[in-house]
Write a protein that binds this DNA or RNA. Structure first.
Lengths: 157, 157
DNA sequence: GCCATAACCGACCTCTTCGGTAGGATTTAG
DNA sequence: CTAAATCCTACCGAAGAGGTCGGTTATGGC
């Protein structure tokens, strides 16, 4: 698996927040119930999202979480990276402040890294997919397919 | 990390085999030495490559491994999949015999899987990158950059 | 002021995988 | 026969995944 369930659960959580129209916060408990996910585990995940500045929290009774920005402005690379850590195809890849990627094997006196070309392409493909998808798209996609499902069930009944 | 060092080491091993021009087999020991990788670990990896039909082996003295097909016909999706197992962005994705991908959450009576769109795109990006890269490309890329490095060292001396 | 609600925080626990080692069995060229 | 090589199985320490638990803090409603 490329990603763990941290990304899966976290994205589901974000979509759930994105569904809510108003600006009133959503409690984690209701999200956990809706998605049938363990509340205590979601707490860890939402903490990462909060530290990444993707959601804001209000404490106390009737508190909860809401998106820090409109869903259209939230791209999934930020979400997944917040949850899974740096997205790189391989251990030896790290971002440099100025440049983009660097393979740690290249500093060796040895011959050049034969895998670099491959991982660059993989990196590009993943980045493009993640950065090119907004939370708003996922929200729309899920509500749309949900309504078609309801229509199917309705016609079957 | 998207992939573990299994993919890294295994690809390096394949490139090393691809470098060799003749049809005489290359011993794992020489590969291990050239790439400075532990021999006993490479044995595990090359076993997977062999079972996947990517390399052939000849036992006994002067034995070793060689590519089962010309490097131009070996695409990296087969190599990485042999080493890492099924490539899917998420646990709930599995290939069906007829169709392409299926999310296991969709069979639930619950609302549709809100993450499917995202993982489909990621899957597509990775598949495209892996399937669109041949071993021959990596061999050429690494030998080319190696020769330029030699030129630099030569001019510096 | 109390209390229910909910965010916060850190410790812990089990299980699997990763990366690697070890020891042996088997095959083959010279 | 022997050295070189593939092959095979078992093991092992460290790390991460996927949670659980208990407690602390903040806040709205009565």
């Amino acid at each position: 698996m490329l990603f763990s369930t941290k990304a899966e659960y976290g994205v589901r959580l974000m979509v759930e927040l994105g569904r809510q129209p108003g600006s009133q916060p959503v409690s984690l408990g209701s999200v956990a119930e809706a998605e049938r996910l363990p509340l205590s585990y979601l707490e860890h995940l939402v903490a990462k999202l909060r530290k990444a500045g993707l959601v804001t929290s209000t404490r106390g009774a009737h508190g909860g979480y809401r998106l820090a920005k409109p869903a259209e402005e939230i791209t999934m690379d930020a979400v997944v990276e917040a949850l899974e850590g740096q997205i790189a195809p391989m251990e030896c890849f790290h971002d440099t402040p100025e440049g983009k990627v660097l393979c740690s094997h290249e500093s060796d006196g040895d011959h050049a890294c034969s895998t670099k070309l491959l991982w660059m392409r993989v990196q590009g493909g993943v980045s493009k997919a993640l950065a090119g998808t907004t939370l708003a798209e996922l929200v729309e996609f899920s509500t749309k397919s949900e309504s078609t499902r309801r229509a199917v069930i309705g016609s079957a009944a």
